[in-house]
Simulated assay, not measured.
Amino acid sequence: MALWSSRNRTETVTCLACGVDVARSDAREYDKHGDRWDRDDKTFEHLCKSCFGDLCHQPRDGLEDLLVDLEAGENSQGVFLSQYLSTVEDRYGPLEEGQD
């Protein structure tokens, strides 16, 4: 057996957005802390290329803290979204509608 044979092994990962299993080479790393370059002691989640392309790549400072504050995943989607919109409006002001 060759010394480097494990490097050629196809590793499968699961997209955290859609749940599809894809080859690691066909996925993008996702770091919920927004710092994918610091690799010390990290375990990354993955997104398929399609879901990664659908992401908003805008800064998300404070988003994780907000989700924790709102206990995301503990309530129904409707309750969560209502709490989220109310909290965002309280913290950052009224939401603006996009212009067509």
Rank of each mutant, 00 (worst) to 15 (best):
38 D>W: 11
74 E>G: 01
83 Q>L: 04
98 G>V: 11
93 G>K: 05
17 A>E: 09
92 Y>N: 04
26 D>R: 11
66 L>P: 05
100 D>R: 07
2 A>N: 11
59 P>Y: 08
58 Q>S: 13
83 Q>W: 01
49 K>S: 09
27 A>M: 04
38 D>E: 15
52 F>L: 07
31 D>G: 14
95 L>R: 03
17 A>T: 00
56 C>E: 14
14 T>H: 03
29 E>L: 12
96 E>R: 08
24 R>L: 15
47 L>C: 12
40 D>K: 12
3 L>D: 09
43 T>D: 14
67 L>C: 00
93 G>N: 05
38 D>A: 13
80 F>I: 04
47 L>Y: 14
70 L>R: 03
90 D>L: 08
8 N>A: 15
75 N>W: 10
90 D>N: 11
33 H>S: 13
27 A>F: 02
16 L>K: 12
29 E>S: 15
79 V>P: 05
21 D>I: 05
28 R>N: 11
43 T>A: 15
8 N>E: 14
99 Q>W: 04
65 D>P: 02
25 S>C: 00
30 Y>A: 09
97 E>N: 11
45 E>S: 14
47 L>R: 13
59 P>S: 09
76 S>L: 00
14 T>I: 13
84 Y>T: 00
47 L>F: 13
6 S>N: 12
12 T>V: 14
44 F>P: 02
93 G>Q: 02
11 E>I: 15
31 D>R: 14
87 T>P: 04
69 D>Y: 06
90 D>W: 00
46 H>L: 03
81 L>F: 01
99 Q>F: 01
28 R>L: 03
91 R>E: 00
85 L>T: 10
54 D>A: 15
49 K>P: 05
55 L>H: 06
84 Y>M: 11
39 R>N: 11
80 F>Y: 06
52 F>Y: 15
100 D>P: 10
92 Y>M: 01
61 D>E: 10
79 V>H: 03
21 D>W: 01
36 R>G: 14
30 Y>W: 15
86 S>W: 03
75 N>G: 03
74 E>S: 02
26 D>N: 15
21 D>A: 13
79 V>A: 11
41 D>I: 07
2 A>P: 13
4 W>D: 11
14 T>A: 05
90 D>M: 05
70 L>H: 00
59 P>F: 06
69 D>I: 01
74 E>Q: 07
59 P>N: 05
35 D>C: 05
44 F>E: 09
68 V>H: 09
36 R>N: 14
